[in-house]
Amino acid sequence: MAMPTVLSDAHVVARRNIIKIKRVPDLLVFTTLSPIMFVLLFAYVFGGAIAVPGGADPNAYREFLMAGIFAQTVIFGATITGAALAEDVKKGIIDRFRSLPMAPSAVLTGRTLSDVVNNVLVLVVMSLTGLLVGWGIHSSVGEAALGFALLILFAYAISWIMAWLGMLVPSVEVFNNATFIVIFPLTFVANTFVPLESLPGPLQTFAEWNPVSAVTQASRELFGNIPAQVPEPTAWPLQHAELYTLIWTVLIVAVFVPLANLQYRRSTSR
């Protein structure tokens, strides 16, 4: 099927999901409220106990924190795809789509693109919260835009893993539990909330090679949140954080776009 059909069908599907954001604003409220809560919790409760390279300035931790929170939030935002698809499979909506003469890849493309819209909205809200607690961007507009783009792009790749998983599991509940178990360690055993140097040996190595650390490091650099006196990281993935993030993004897309599409063609309700 011609590319324009895929795109116009995907647009129709994405519009459906965006109408849902509009109709159930609670959804957006809660997906933004929890990261705001995280910002406040880390900035004011844990922040004092976490020493970051950059000195005793109380603002230093908030500067450090925001990129980590952004990374965690957009990754959680990417799970919306999986939960929504699990629900659609169960309710027979995927059966309906599959019985229509539309481009088969359009459902997943539309679904994952809706996550992007959602993540952009959430990033806007969170950046404003960050500014309020003392975070700031100390780089050029171009670099900052690149930082946000990298976060969105990486989360978009994660959406495809979630799409595959969402159609594989028998229910939304299973999906939520499964992703929680994977995403929590991935986003915490990283440089998101604490400096890597504070982690014990094996965990530190894991965190250094964890792509979540790379995307965090890259956006920290691009927002200009790393003070000049902080030494260059020693691990290769963090020295080349942007490249390493892109490698993971490409790898995930290359593996999970075909896998998710295959699963879509196989999935029927129950």
Binding site: R16, I19, K91, G92, I93, D95, R96, S269
Partner: peptide
């Protein structure tokens, strides 16, 4: 289908 496959939102 067996279940009303309409989007509830």
């Amino acid at each position: 289908g067996q279940y009303a496959a309409v989007d509830e939102y």
